[in-house]
């Protein structure tokens, strides 16, 4: 499965490194993290990471392969 995580604001390079398994791109005033998600446990892990880094989650959705 592939997912796309939309974060409020521009993510610094350093913090983007906290998601090494995902690619990221900065669009307007948001950062898009995207890439393959292994399973549900991984998905919840990503959510927890977003939360623990104090990032504001705007959207998370599954995208077609």
């Amino acid at each position: 499965m592939r997912y796309e995580i939309r974060i409020d604001g521009h993510l610094s390079k350093t913090l983007a490194e906290a998601f090494p398994e995902l690619d990221h791109v900065v669009v307007c005033d948001q950062t898009l993290l995207y890439g393959p998600v292994v399973d549900e446990a991984h998905l919840y892990g990503l959510l927890a990471r977003v939360q623990s880094l104090g990032l504001r989650l705007l959207e998370m959705r599954r995208v077609p392969e």
């Binding site: 974060i7 604001g9 521009h10 610094s12 307007c28 104090g54 504001r56």
Partner: peptide, 10 residues
């Protein structure tokens, strides 16, 4: 337009 804590902490 940086993410808040990320930018400020740096």
């Amino acid at each position: 337009q940086s993410t808040v804590a990320d930018y400020l902490l740096a």
